[in-house]
Computed example of a mutant assay.
Amino acid sequence: MLKVKAGDLDKIGLLFERYNRPLYGFLFHMTYQRETSEDMVQQVFYKMLKYRHTFTGSGEVKHWMYSIARNVLKDQVRRKKLAMSGESVEVVASHVAAGLTPEEHLEKKQAKLALQKAMARLSEDYREVLTLNKFQELKYHEIADILGASETAIRTRVHRAMQELKSIYVRMEQ
């Protein structure tokens, strides 16, 4: 990113290759909308180019990138009031390719939808920390850097988010 900041704009392609999939995963788990998430990934990289002068190099580029992604997501939510969507064609195809029976596919689909519904009922803060920790597999100190909080606060937030998710899931089952 320091090379991009210095004017070597071709290097943004390397950053895109390295980070577009994890970034897409984060945005998708926050919205459950494939096309919207793809668009937001593009917006993040556009903003990285546009605001490259603000990158200080003092932390990891992915922390700066996720901060931009969070802002893009907030803008998108304000603009369009995102709603959670259902199952994608890719999920069905992956289950068929894995040799699942129709019953097994239905069970996986129902479990995934239940988790999505439970996640959707979480506050945005809880959904965000769970997505970063459980789906993006970021460590607590990395999430703390992205969110501007202490590692202890993030540990507590993840723990409380998991408790809340379990509670919501149990209520849904009843």
Results as ranks from 00 to 15, higher is better:
101 T>S: 14
46 Y>P: 04
161 A>R: 01
14 L>S: 14
150 S>P: 03
163 Q>G: 12
74 K>Q: 11
157 R>A: 03
37 S>A: 13
149 A>H: 15
91 V>N: 04
23 L>F: 02
23 L>T: 02
165 L>I: 06
54 T>F: 07
23 L>N: 00
58 S>C: 06
39 D>Y: 03
89 V>F: 13
4 V>R: 04
45 F>E: 00
115 L>D: 13
10 D>Q: 12
102 P>W: 10
20 N>R: 13
7 G>T: 14
31 T>K: 01
122 L>Y: 06
32 Y>S: 07
60 E>T: 04
22 P>R: 02
73 L>C: 06
42 Q>R: 10
49 L>V: 07
73 L>Q: 02
86 G>D: 15
158 V>K: 00
172 M>H: 13
42 Q>Y: 11
93 A>T: 04
70 R>I: 07
100 L>A: 07
80 K>D: 12
173 E>P: 02
26 F>N: 00
125 D>W: 04
3 K>E: 14
104 E>A: 14
101 T>F: 04
8 D>M: 13
113 L>C: 11
69 A>C: 05
151 E>Q: 09
24 Y>G: 02
1 M>T: 08
41 V>Y: 00
19 Y>F: 10
91 V>F: 15
37 S>H: 03
103 E>N: 12
153 A>W: 15
105 H>Q: 11
59 G>D: 09
160 R>Q: 14
160 R>K: 15
95 H>W: 15
76 Q>A: 12
140 Y>A: 09
74 K>V: 14
62 K>E: 06
68 I>T: 02
2 L>T: 12
57 G>D: 08
106 L>D: 08
93 A>D: 12
43 Q>W: 04
7 G>P: 10
148 G>W: 04
12 I>K: 01
159 H>G: 05
131 T>G: 00
48 M>Y: 00
45 F>C: 01
6 A>K: 14
5 K>S: 09
62 K>V: 02
12 I>Q: 02
70 R>H: 12
66 Y>S: 01
99 G>S: 03
123 S>H: 14
15 L>C: 07
97 A>Q: 14
24 Y>P: 00
118 A>N: 03
102 P>Q: 10
15 L>M: 12
101 T>L: 05
173 E>D: 08
85 S>L: 13
75 D>T: 09
118 A>Y: 03
42 Q>L: 11
12 I>Y: 01
3 K>G: 08
146 I>W: 00
89 V>M: 11
82 L>G: 04
167 S>E: 07
69 A>D: 00
95 H>G: 11
105 H>W: 07
126 Y>F: 14
100 L>H: 05
161 A>E: 02
85 S>Y: 14
77 V>S: 10
83 A>D: 12
40 M>A: 02
80 K>G: 15
81 K>V: 10
84 M>K: 12
170 V>R: 09
128 E>S: 05
108 K>E: 15
80 K>S: 13
78 R>Y: 10
38 E>R: 15
102 P>C: 06
163 Q>M: 11
35 E>C: 05
153 A>G: 11
117 K>R: 09
19 Y>A: 00
111 A>Q: 13
6 A>T: 13
145 D>E: 12
148 G>S: 06
117 K>V: 07
7 G>V: 14
69 A>G: 01
33 Q>G: 06
71 N>Q: 05
166 K>M: 13
143 I>C: 03
